[in-house]
Nucleic acid binder design. Structure first.
Lengths: 180, 180
DNA sequence: ATCCACATGTAAGGCGTTACATGATTGG
DNA sequence: CCAATCATGTAACGCCTTACATGTGGAT
C-alpha cells in the first residue's frame, strides 16, 4: 500500500483535472521537472499501481482510436493526497556536479577554482534561460500563479551571482598577491 | 571501465591523502553530503571496483588488528580524476518535496500556500543550522577554505529568506482583499 | 562488564533512466 | 506520402539506501 514519491506527483496533477499519462509527462516537463523529474518509464507503471490501489481510475477514451486512457482521481485518491499534503516535507536533496568539482578542487590554483565557479554559474544561467522561456510561453495571467517557476528562476539567478562574486574575490586576491 | 559518479567522489577525496572507507564516509558526511551523499553500501563496493580497475590501491594496515584497509590513488587513478575534473559538470539535480507541495497547492487558499512556504523555509533554516555547526567544528583557518560550505549556508539562507518574503506578500494581499 | 566508536562488508529492494517496441493521427 | 507528434507500454540496467552480519579496541 506504499506510494512512491513520484506517485504523489501523479496524484497531485490529477487533482486539478483528468489527464492521460502522456499529458502528465508533458506537464511535469514544464513544471516540476526542475525539482521533481519523472519519465515515462515511471509514469505509466505508476498509473497502473495507483489504479490497482483504487486511488485513480482510468477510462479508455472511446472517441480516440489511439488508445488514450484518461485517468482521474478517485475519492480515496483525493483523501490520500490530502493526508500527504498535510505531512511536513521530508526529502530535500541536491546533486550538483559543479559544486562537487569545486569542492574536490580545494587546494588547487585560484585559476582552477575560478574555472569551476564559471562552469557552475554558467549552468545556473542556462537553467534560468530555459525557465524564462517556459514562463513566456505560459502568458502573463497564468505566470503570476507560478510561484515555483519564480523560485527556480530567482534561485538560479542567485547561484549565478554567487559564483560571479566568488570569482571576482579570487581575482582580487590574486592581483594583490602578485603585486606583493 | 565506467566509473559511477560516486566513484569520482572517492577518487577526489583520496587525491588529498590516503584513507580507509570508513574515513571517506566520515569526510563525506561533513562535506559533500549536502550536494553529493554517499553511504557505506556504496563506498565499500566502489573501492573494490576502483581497485579492480587499478585506479586506487588498498593496503591492509598491519599495525591494526581491526582489519583497516588504507586506500591511495594510483597514477592511473590520478589521470582519470584529472580528466573528469576538466570535463564540464553534467548533473545538476534537485529533489525538494517542499517545493513540490507548494506547486501542487496551486489554487489552494493563501493560508495553505503560506503553510507550505513556512515548512520549506523551516527546512532551509535547519540545514543552515547544521552547516554552521560543521563550520564551527572546523576552526577558522580551515573554514576560510571551505567555499562549498559557505555556498550551502548562503544558499539555504537565501531560500529561507525567499520563503519569508513570499509569505509576507501573501499576508499583505490577503489583508487588502479582506479590507476591500 | 558494557557501551560506544571503529571498521568492513553483503543482500534486498526501491527508485529512476534509457532504450526499445509498437502503432495511430495530423499537417504539410 | 512522410515527418512529427500523439500515445502506451516494457526490459534492462544503474544507482543508491537500509538493514543486516560480524568483529575489534578503548573508555568507564
Amino acid at each position: 500500500m506504499e506510494i512512491s514519491p513520484t506517485g504523489y506527483v501523479v496524484l497531485g496533477i490529477l487533482n486539478w483535472q483528468p489527464r492521460t499519462g502522456y499529458e502528465i509527462k508533458q506537464l511535469v516537463d514544464r513544471s516540476t521537472r526542475f525539482f521533481w523529474a519523472a519519465s515515462y518509464g515511471q509514469i505509466y507503471p505508476e498509473l497502473k499501481r495507483l489504479s490497482d490501489q483504487r486511488l485513480v481510475s482510468g477510462k479508455a477514451d472511446l472517441k480516440s482510436a489511439r488508445g488514450r486512457k484518461v485517468y482521474r482521481l478517485t475519492p480515496k485518491g483525493h483523501r490520500e493526497l490530502d493526508r500527504w499534503m498535510q505531512r511536513p516535507p521530508e526529502t530535500f536533496e541536491m546533486r550538483n556536479e559543479g559544486l562537487l568539482k569545486l569542492f574536490l578542487a580545494t587546494g588547487d590554483s585560484p585559476e582552477e577554482i575560478a574555472r569551476h565557479l564559471g562552469e557552475m554559474g554558467g549552468n545556473a544561467d542556462d537553467v534560468v534561460a530555459r525557465l524564462r522561456e517556459i514562463r513566456e510561453e505560459l502568458g502573463a495571467e497564468q505566470a503570476s500563479d507560478q510561484l515555483c517557476l519564480r523560485f527556480g528562476i530567482e534561485m538560479n539567478e542567485w547561484i549565478a551571482g554567487w559564483c560571479q562574486r566568488r570569482q571576482r574575490e579570487l581575482a582580487g586576491a590574486d592581483t594583490k598577491k602578485r603585486a606583493a
